[in-house]
Design a protein around this nucleic acid. Structure first.
Lengths: 224, 224
DNA sequence: GTGGTGCTGTCAGGAAATTGTCAGCTTAGG
DNA sequence: CCTAAGCTGACAATTTCCTGACAGCACCAC
């Protein structure tokens, strides 16, 4: 399920967006300001960004995103109350992927969101070599054969596969995949990695996908 | 273990922060004033900075940090009792990375601290000539070829490479890389330096990266 | 120079830490 | 009540880490 980050200071507008988007099957993260938004960006598949924010202009945040290699390709949909052509041009030249002028209709919003997600390839499909993860269906495929993964297994694999090469400690994984409320041991992660490795038919000593970094954590192998 | 520097003059608030943060697995350094804080900054991975301090405004300290090349990228989380928008804007424009308005909840505090630490660790890429350290991937490269470093080796190298030219005694290195709880010999450092030198293919007599300062300690060679 | 002194480089074995794996317990859902 | 998933503790297999010993070198005094 794609995660959308709504950055909008007006509570009423934000709620409206949340309702429309979550009803359409998206997961919605919210921020009222640019500074609130920044830490959440990492988890987002698409950002809906208001032009005017209390702390800094939306375009400034947009610039920061574009200058960060991690977010270069993250789709950003600008929202604005103004309908002036100049803003539109400015937003797009600064790196916004699309543009929506308030007030806008819900179908139009959803259509553009869908289009952007599809375009960015984040619509819920991660492909890493012979491994394909369909996030919408919660279904993994290996060499085009469906894999029978449990929820945790799938979530863990999807999380790691989202950022190949990046190492995550067990604690980070517990927090991000299990959730902050999880109160168990870090070794739980190992167990699920082992389970995944078996289903992915890989050897822990010579892994195709899930690498162990002794003393650090796990990472999804970078193919290139 | 990340080290957080709490700069806050109210003893009660400071204690609260210390408890919350240390319980979350962070190491906490404390300062009641800006002048107390300054010498501790060097040891910190993140600074939690109160807006108002007895000797000088927090933003002034923030400015000093930002104008020092060593601390340009050090994450700073501003704390303030005021909820006024102007302060928020001022703090962020002057270089704070995030912002928290008192009173704040512990989960929110921890979440923001986590996010900042993650971010600062990720953006970290240290390049020193043919040697590249990718902190995000926990992977070192020499002439673009990946190096197989253990955790300690990588941590030690990363620490030294972070401040080229600066000498560290064995005791300092043990404290910063191994942690305060380490109770061993200082010679342990030598062993790891030797290990690193071998993997970096360098001669201890004519080192490219890791220099010995007899009677003092080690330092990463300044290329320029 | 020469010799002494202290510091550093190096080696190898044992200690310690980390991870893989297994089996069993608990829980949620049907 | 049954099944599957999730989690944990225990143990084994590795790997990493650390230490003590010794050799070698730099620096100093003479």
């Amino acid at each position: 399920m794609p995660r959308l980050l709504v950055v909008e200071d007006e509570p009423a507008v934000r709620m409206g967006l949340r309702l429309s988007l979550s009803r359409a099957g998206h997961q919605v993260l919210e921020a009222a300001t640019a500074s609130e938004a920044w830490p959440l960006v990492e988890q987002a598949d698409l950002v809906l960004l208001d032009w005017m924010l209390p702390d800094e202009p939306g375009v400034r945040l947009l610039e920061r995103l574009r200058s960060d290699s991690r977010y270069e390709t993250l789709p950003v949909l600008m929202l604005t109350a103004r309908s002036g052509e100049s803003d539109r041009v400015e937003g797009l030249t600064r790196g916004a992927d699309d543009y929506l002028t308030k007030p806008f209709s819900t179908p139009e919003l959803l259509a553009r969101v869908q289009a952007l997600l599809r375009r960015s390839g984040r619509s819920g499909r991660i492909e890493r070599g012979a491994l394909v993860l369909d996030l919408e269906r919660h279904q993994a495929y290996l060499h085009n054969a469906p894999l029978d993964l449990t929820r945790r297994e799938f979530d863990l694999l999807a999380f790691l596969a989202r950022h190949p090469g990046r190492v995550y400690t067990r604690e980070e994984l517990l927090e991000r995949v299990w959730g902050q409320e999880f109160m168990g041991t870090a070794r739980t992660v190992d167990q699920h990695v082992a389970q995944l490795r078996e289903k992915l038919q890989e050897n822990s000593k010579n892994p195709l996908y899930l690498e162990t970094l002794r003393g650090v954590g796990y990472r999804f192998r970078e193919s290139a």
